[in-house]
């Protein structure tokens, strides 16, 4: 049994399959504990819908989503599932419940009925984990987008989940905010061993994941490690998807006759690759 199992899930928004509004078409996938998975796809590919399946915000029309053996369709275990799988949304403004940072972070544990002393501890450690501890008594609306998003992540961490699903958490942020949030996500995955499911359309962010899943039109187009997936440039281009610029450059050099041994995914690797090529010549 995997940590999260998605089995032949079909979903349509207005439950009318004849109109062709089916967003997810028999999707099956599984996620291991501690994994960092990136879900990619352009608008309307069903990636946000899939994100809401993981903790039972949306329920499949047919097929099953199970978390640690608990089906999301079962009302009795729904709270346990949501405690294990946290969801962070795109707009940081819309998901903060309380006005003060630490009170917002405490919202989740409060709902779980945890002892006040323990909540305090969890809130402090969650805020430290996202480097927002010194802002604990600040008004949430005065923070920058990246800071708000990190507070939202802290609110999830305070529930001590096994997995965090992030639905385009950086889409509304400036480059600096994006960097802050991505650093936090990677740190949580590496240090706290929290499973991360990152939904994004930034290829550079996706390249940081252990595994990529490309969604297209409600089905899984391809999956694998970033290097495997981004080497299928032809396929991605056919479906109007991008690849990281470094991979693109390597691909073009390759088609001009340069031999590329390993696909670079970021600028540093790319520079190394080109230097190696120059030395050979």
């Amino acid at each position: 049994m995997q940590f999260i199992d998605v089995d032949k899930v079909v979903f349509a928004y207005d439950n009318d399959e004849e109109t062709g509004n089916t967003v997810l078409k028999e999707i099956s996938l599984s996620i291991k504990k501690g994994e960092f998975v990136a879900l990619l796809g352009h608008n309307g590919s069903g990636k946000s819908t899939l994100a809401k399946m993981f903790n039972g915000i949306l329920l499949p029309d047919s097929g099953d989503v199970t978390v640690c053996g608990m089906n999301t369709k079962n009302d009795e275990t729904l709270l346990d599932i949501r405690r294990k799988v946290g969801l962070v949304l795109q707009n940081p403004d819309n998901q903060l419940v309380a006005s003060i940072v630490e009170e917002d972070v405490a919202f989740g544990p409060e709902n779980l009925g945890i002892d006040p002393v323990e909540i305090r501890k969890r809130v402090d450690s969650a805020l430290k984990a996202v480097d927002m501890y010194e802002y604990r008594d600040h008004a949430a609306y005065k923070l920058s987008g990246g800071q708000k998003q990190r507070v939202a992540i802290a609110g999830i961490i305070a529930m001590q989940p096994d997995c965090i699903v992030l639905d385009e958490p950086t889409a509304m942020l400036d480059p600096q905010g994006r960097q802050e949030v991505m650093d936090t996500i990677i740190k949580l995955n590496k240090e706290k061993k929290i499973t991360i499911i990152l939904i994004t359309h930034y290829m550079d962010e996706a390249a940081l994941a252990d595994r990529l899943l490309i969604l297209d039109n409600g089905t899984i187009l391809t999956q694998g490690s970033p290097k495997e997936v981004f080497s299928k440039i032809e396929l991605l281009k056919r479906h109007k998807l991008d690849v990281p610029q470094a991979a693109q450059l390597a691909y073009r050099l390759n088609s001009c006759g340069f031999k590329i041994d390993e696909l670079p995914l970021n600028a540093d690797d790319c520079v190394k690759m080109i230097l190696a090529q120059i030395e050979k010549v």
């Binding site: 946290g86 819309n94 419940v97 919202f107 709902n111 002892d115």
Partner: peptide
Amino acid sequence: DLAMAMESRCYHGGEGRTRM
């Protein structure tokens, strides 16, 4: 959005809720 975020954070009314 907020309702979804609150549900994701296990909000289920005032029953059994504690305060920090």
